[in-house]
Design a protein around this nucleic acid. Structure first.
Lengths: 210, 210
DNA sequence: GAGGGTGTTATTCGATCGAATAGGAACTTG
DNA sequence: CAAGTTCCTATTCGATCGAATAACACCCTC
């Protein structure tokens, strides 16, 4: 069952390589179904290839997972890091960061889901992801939060360590719980109106009326 | 391999019944390992009983899951509903609610984990849990938030629907991601100092300096 | 146009899954 | 103390898991 129309073998270098496509599909599957729930057969079926291709390209399921995660964080970084320095005002910088974060999480809720999937239990995957990806991001966030806190009425006196988890949870929860949100409210978590309203609410809450 | 010392059969009605114990263990296992990851064999082993007991008591794994979830929500309700009405000031009521929520989630992080595990994907379990448990809680929360919003400088003008997800995420994230938090910060998410600091930060953020 | 990669499928393996079954051990009721 | 009920274990079943293997189809180089 070759996904697209192209009949036989799809003549190398079609849209994207099969390998890249597998990584894409894997991230969503791991996020949606969990590491155990996302069987290599399901992943292969969604990608329209044979299950044997996964050991072939990635060796083990674990390595496939790691490569998919690396890829997701690369995308997140490229999303957030672009021209953030140029803004002198720390509050404005935080505001833009929040808006970007919201949009990113809304567009790729699987990212937040994967993080929560792994961050909630001890294990080699948790340690790997924290040491390799979360810690640097966390450090950068603390710095940004620490600077933005100065002068913000809503945030003064708040411990940045707690603020970090408060902010991340506040930003991601709605999109992380997308299906629940949709069933509960009838709204579409991928709707731009919902996304913008959420970002607006967060910015008002964290940065007050300045 | 009977867990405790009690030799043969444990003479009915010891501490708690085996069935209750299985429900307790199940909730933690489902939250920690996910529905698929928590095999009935693992659950049985943690409870110190034979795997065959689970079909015996609960019929199917799905029914075991539902009963464990019912039990968790019963506990949450009894935690939150007690003498909340008597406080006239909506802001104070929200403040106490936040403090209780934080303490509950800190004490039973498996609750938040289980909710996020199921709320992130479509499926019969998601629909069951939303219709049966989340919707009533959500309605009550919206009412409380709507009233508390009036007069609170930080929350005026914010859509209660968004506020709900912001609040839930902000409250739960740190404890939901307990193992990650511990590795990242070196702090213990079950430490009372951490718990109180988190509640304080949340209350200041949401209720400002009143 | 023969030969050697490379990408891919089909098949198979041992392990583990949830559930069914049969039987045993202890308590309850006569 | 015999019979029945309840609680629990041991074993087994078909399904599915991740991974290994063998063979195949295509492309490239010569």
């Amino acid at each position: 069952m070759a996904a697209s129309g192209s009949e036989k073998r799809a003549t190398r270098a079609e849209e994207t390589s099969t390998r890249e496509h597998l990584l894409d599909v894997s991230l969503r599957a791991f996020a949606e179904l969990g590491y155990d729930g996302a069987s290599t057969r399901i992943i292969a079926a969604r990608a329209g290839v044979n299950q044997g291709l996964i050991p072939y390209y990635f060796g083990t399921k674990e390595k496939l997972w790691r490569e998919a995660v690396d890829r997701a964080f690369t995308e997140l970084r490229s999303e957030l890091e672009s021209n953030l320095e140029e803004d002198a005002d720390a509050s404005r910088r935080l505001e833009r960061m929040i808006r970007r974060l919201v949009r990113f999480v809304a567009r790729r809720p699987e990212f937040a889901r994967l993080m929560s999937e792994e961050g909630k239990r001890e294990g080699p995957r948790m340690r790997w992801i924290v040491d390799r990806h979360v810690r640097p991001m966390h450090a950068a966030s603390l710095e940004l939060l620490g600077r933005a806190r100065v002068g913000s009425p809503a945030m003064t006196g708040l411990d940045p360590a707690h603020l970090y988890y408060i902010l991340v949870g506040a930003v991601t929860q709605l999109f992380h719980q997308g299906p629940e949100f949709r069933r509960l409210t009838g709204l579409d978590p991928s709707d731009d109106a919902v996304i913008d309203a959420h970002a607006d609410a967060l910015i008002q809450l964290f940065l007050g009326g300045d």
